[in-house]
Every structure is written in C-alpha cells, then in structure tokens.
Design a binder for these strands. Structure first.
Lengths: 154, 154
DNA sequence: AAATACCTGAGTAGTTTAGTCGGGAATTGT
DNA sequence: ACAATTCCCGACTAAACTACTCAGGTATTT
C-alpha cells in the first residue's frame, strides 16, 4: 500500500466521474478541464482503471468513460491499488530468508500495519465521498453509525 | 500524509530502538547492522526524528540514541510525519482560489480522507507494535477490545 | 590524545512522477 | 465517403524523490 499524489489524482478523477456521470459517458477532456489534470496523464490513469474493471469506455463522439458499477460498489482502496501497483513491503519477499529473526519481525509488523490501512480504505466507497460532499459536513456519510463510532475511536 | 518506504524505514528503526534500548543508548551502527539500513541514511532519518523530539542523542563513546519518552507515548503517525514532510494535498494551498468550486470540493474530500488515515495511525504506538511482536499473534495488542472491534469493522 | 559516536552538507545513480508528443482505431453525424 | 470526436497506445522527458556514499566536522569518554 502506497499513498502518493498519483492515487489522489485517480480518486479525484473517479469522484468527478461519480458526480458528473449521471448515465451519460464523461469525456476525459471534461475531467481534465474541471480537475485541472493533464489529458494525457488522465489517459494513462484510466487505462489502468479500465484494466482493473473500475470504469468502462465508449469510443467515438458522445463517448467517454463511465463507472463500471454503482458508486457504492467502488472503494477508494481499489482505485489506489489500480494506479499505484503495490510494492513488496517485506524486503525479503516473504520468503523469510532474513539473516536475523528480528528483521522479519519488523517487516511483518509493517505488513500488518499496511494491511490495516488497506482495510480502512476498502470500506470507503465513492458513494460515501459523494454524499459527504453534498452534505458539506465533517463526517463520512454512508457509513453506519457503528462504523462512525469506530472511526472516531481510531 | 504520505506512505512511502522511507516512513517504513523510520518506523522499523524506531521499533528497533524500542525493543533494544532498555535504558541504554543504542548506536545507529547497531540499528544499521540489525535492520540492514545504511548508516548514513539512518543518520539523516534520525536528524529529523531528533528535530521532532522523538529521540534524544548522546554523543561520544557509549552514546547513541534513546526514545525521547516511553514507547507507549510515541505513535506511528508522528514518526512518519517527522521523516516524510507532508505535501500540500489541496493544490490551491487551502486559499480556496480554485477557479471552479468543484475542484476545492474534491480537494477537501481528499484532505479529510488523509486526515482519517492520519488519525488511524495516530492511535498505534510503538508499545502496541512491540507487544504485538512478542505475542506473535495477529492482533495489535495494547488496544482495548472495543478498539479491536473497530479495527475489524474498518 | 585517541577512540567513539553523533552531526552536517554535498553529491549521485536509479527510480518515480507528471507530464508531452505523435500517431493510431473506433464511432458518430453529414 | 468523410470529417469530427474520443478513446487508445507507446515512446520520450524534465523534474523530483529515494536511498544512498563521501568527506569532513564536533562532543564525549577512556
């Protein structure tokens, strides 16, 4: 799990799609203009998003991109994973061939930490972000009350 | 909030300090050997960790580094923030001078998301990671049962 | 005085980021 | 048929970042 600006670009673009893509395809040119991301860069990102089946493309005039499914079924973690191919956090490729036992200890600890962040982002959907924006509040709507409490505790 | 290999190095090194630094100062050379991180790179990281008052240094023979306070009072988020200076996620520097209102909308959404990850890592201390390692289990010990439920839900 | 260990800054090969550029291929409207 | 639109694809690139090395310091202990 990596958290870079590229992931942010992808999430922003997907969020733009979710907000402006009511049934009709949205052009990368439109997203580029609205979000001020270069068209060619968007093309690279959407090539990856399409390969991961997060969006579908329609060619020709009137074409563009659409979410591959409802915005409630697309999660932030999926978007980030699609554009930021994951790194091997273990440094010994999980083979456990580290010289000292403690090295692997810390590696595994980090792996678990990374997994927890991943799980965290795996429960925030585009719909959550969209509804949050429209309500202009400080909480992520779309989550249950119990989950909100969880977020607070963490 | 950025999540890179540099942050992982820093967390690993601090965890090594927490595990091996029982009262005595720990040498960067020791950490370098145990964790297989280059000495000079460690020096750069620890310069930043010291500036953020996460460690204290003792010079001369028998010197080294110590945690600036108990391992239960040092959190993963602090370590990562210390070495990975944060990027401005807003792109308009929070001045709200974006041309279109929607740009700032998505920027703030991302900011909030980033904050939530930050809050998440702000509640995992070195002590949590140390105790997890010693128990060799799959849960982060040191958290309350309620918090563990939260982690599961997220 | 000598050894230890932190401290600092400058440089650097390799990778990643965030693009540009140039050309295609599919689809639509005339 | 033809032009416009839009996705698609690969190669290239300046700038930044990563993970180092190197060369010297400075403080402290023996």
């Amino acid at each position: 799990m990596k958290l870079t600006t590229r992931g942010r670009y992808a999430v922003t673009a997907m969020l733009d799609l979710a907000i402006h893509g009511g049934g009709q395809p949205t052009t990368l040119g439109d997203i580029s203009r609205r979000q001020e991301i270069s068209l060619s860069y968007l093309e690279q990102l959407f090539a990856k998003l399409r390969r991961e089946n997060l969006v579908v493309s329609i060619r020709g005039p009137g074409g563009g991109y659409q979410l591959a499914r409802g915005d409630a079924a697309i999660y932030v973690a999926q978007i980030i994973d699609a554009v930021d191919e994951s790194i091997d956090a273990t440094n010994c490729q999980g083979k456990g061939d580290c010289n000292h036992g403690e090295v692997c200890l810390t590696h595994h600890l980090w792996q678990d930490l990374s997994d927890q962040i991943h799980n965290f982002l795996s429960d925030i959907s585009l719909a959550d972000l969209v509804s949050k924006g429209s309500h202009n509040g400080t909480r992520v709507s779309g989550l249950t009350d119990a989950q909100m409490v969880s977020v607070r505790q963490l």
